[in-house]
Design a binder for these strands. Structure first.
Lengths: 158, 158
DNA sequence: CTAAGATAGTTTTATTTGCAACTATCTAAA
DNA sequence: TTTAGATAGTTGCAAATAAAACTATCTTAG
């Protein structure tokens, strides 16, 4: 029988690594700006795409449960970091976008977060880093994790 | 100003990938054997290391909170999958080890889990897979995630 | 030897998260 | 048009997790 070493088992290692990286990054947005992960994901999605998008869209492409997004949206609205626009074409949904304050926060967060990311990857050579990211992309595509905005409804919500 | 694309941001991608892989694997041990992630981690740690080890050790090297481990240990004891040995040298701690039944379950789980892992990595060439795992190791070492059993107490419990 | 601090493990509590039910709105088919 | 089903978003509840307080035991400095 083949043996199983937990510490060589990729799923376990990914889990552990992701947890570690998350807590390392959280100090940037949580400790400094009172944001949690869902809040940061919303901010980042809205900030990166210039235009407004729906909560559903954010939930889908960040693979975060819609109820989690809903709560985080409420919090961000309360802090005046995002705003809701009625959509007269479809009154079920709201388009969300950053307020000026929200955009300022988004911009303020980028440099330290990119710095952290670079730090984490600094143990790899340029070549290794490129290969690593490429492998990541392949696995994501293989598992159908692509963020594609045109998008089929992606397997709904697991 | 540099921009930040969430979908190219490695910490986010790791998080998303780990979550996806976790749920994919959970079907193996949860649906089939009623194990949750902490339970599986204990089983795997005890199974891989032939000898008995303490709850503290498992918590540290799997980076799982000690209260989570404590509860999972209670559950596994109740199911007769592991047993506790008094340590007369230090009566604060207990050494844990698999029962025969626990070992059988561990053995039964290995093949399907390794198959899943292989499936997930099947989109990479052999070369890419080796490089990917190597990069993972480097990052783990860089972030001080090494499982090292000799081990300094690793930053205690976050 | 004793007291102060450290450590293993448990338990209580609070937080977070996902699920499921619900409302409101839209779409499509009879 | 009416009705059945789908979809966006919210909310109540339950499960999982982490934090913190607690017990018991060990270690070490005086």
């Amino acid at each position: 029988m083949t043996d199983l070493d937990l510490f060589k088992f990729v799923p376990f290692r990914l889990n552990r690594l992701a947890a570690e990286v998350s807590t390392a990054l959280a100090t940037e947005y949580a400790d400094s700006y009172g944001l949690d992960i869902p809040g940061w994901r919303i901010l980042a999605t809205l900030g990166f795409r210039g235009d407004a998008c729906t909560a559903q869209y954010i939930a889908r492409c960040t693979r975060t449960h819609k109820s989690t997004i809903s709560r985080a949206v409420t919090a961000l609205l309360g802090r005046g970091l995002i705003e809701r626009l009625e959509n007269t074409d479809d009154r079920r949904e709201f388009r969300l976008r950053l307020t000026d304050e929200g955009r300022a926060l988004y911009r303020a967060l980028i440099p330290p977060l990119l710095r952290r990311e670079a730090e984490i990857l600094s143990c790899l050579t340029e070549r290794e880093r490129i290969d690593f990211v490429m492998a990541l992309s392949k696995i994501e595509r293989h598992l159908d994790l692509v963020q594609d905005l045109s998008s089929k409804p992606p397997a709904d919500e697991r």
